[in-house]
């Protein structure tokens, strides 16, 4: 028997593809955000609201990943922004190559802001670099305050955590302080926004955050 050395990270191929995307985004001058959450946390509703509020301020586009159907793209597309749907056909996350292929359908240079709505999944999307500038995530309060401790990786990787559906807090035992404390134990620099797409609470802070990040990236900060 001969022992052969391989020493190869299994995400190396993805990381190389992500770097290709990153270079492309830099040349195009577009700010790219990878938006992640578990299924049903409210990403698509948030992006509908975001499109309505930002479409006159920034040239915004959305690429949305789902296992099946174009329902999310149809919903977001009604709000007057370019949308492209990726169907992973069973895949539990987007990877850098899927995004690269989708970029051919949506010219990044025609955009200021590209939001990639990842497949609804609190686990796997966090593992895959897409070449984005930032990752943000939604934790809806119906999911429970223990999620940062139980599903840590996404909280470690995100720049921003949106606490979503906060209009439901009066009906729940969700402990906001405990959830935020656990998330910041994982990631001390994590920014947090409380938001409800239903009542509009926090939406202005969210769009201001996006514009601020777009400006910071454009100015090389």
């Amino acid at each position: 028997m001969i022992e052969l050395t391989i020493e190869r990270g299994l995400l190396d191929d993805n990381d190389r593809a992500a770097q290709v995307n990153r270079d492309r985004f830099r040349k195009a001058g577009v700010y790219v955000l990878n938006l992640m959450s578990g299924p049903g946390a409210g990403k698509t509703t948030l992006l509908e609201q975001t499109a309505q509020r930002l479409r006159d301020r920034l040239r915004m586009g959305v690429i949305v990943g789902d296992i099946q159907t174009s329902r999310d793209a149809d919903r977001i597309g009604r709000h007057g922004v370019p949308v492209h749907q990726i169907n992973t056909g069973g895949g539990c996350h987007l990877d850098a190559r899927m995004l690269e292929a989708a970029l051919d359908a949506m010219d990044p240079a025609s955009l200021d802001l590209l939001i990639v709505e990842n497949v609804g999944n609190l686990v796997c999307p966090a593992e895959f670099d897409l070449g984005e500038h930032d990752k943000a995530m939604v934790l809806s309060v119906t999911e429970g305050a223990d999620k940062p401790a139980k599903y840590p990786l996404m909280f470690c990787q995100s720049r921003l955590m949106i606490l979503g559906k906060v209009d439901l807090l009066p009906y729940l035992d969700f402990d906001c302080d405990a959830a935020i404390a656990d998330a910041r134990a994982l990631n001390p620099g994590l920014e947090v926004l409380r938001l409800s797409s239903k009542t509009g609470e926090g939406l202005e802070a969210w769009t201001d955050w996006l514009v601020g990040r777009w400006r910071a990236v454009r100015e090389g900060r």
């Binding site: 001969i2 052969l4 391989i6 190869r8 990270g9 404390a181 656990d182 134990a185 001390p188």
Partner: peptide
């Protein structure tokens, strides 16, 4: 203190294989 920076634990890496000689 709660939490900390991850030094090890995210690895998904192949190392070696044994093949017939």
């Amino acid at each position: 203190a709660i939490g900390g920076d991850v030094l090890q634990g995210r690895e998904i890496r192949l190392t070696t294989i044994d093949v017939d000689d």
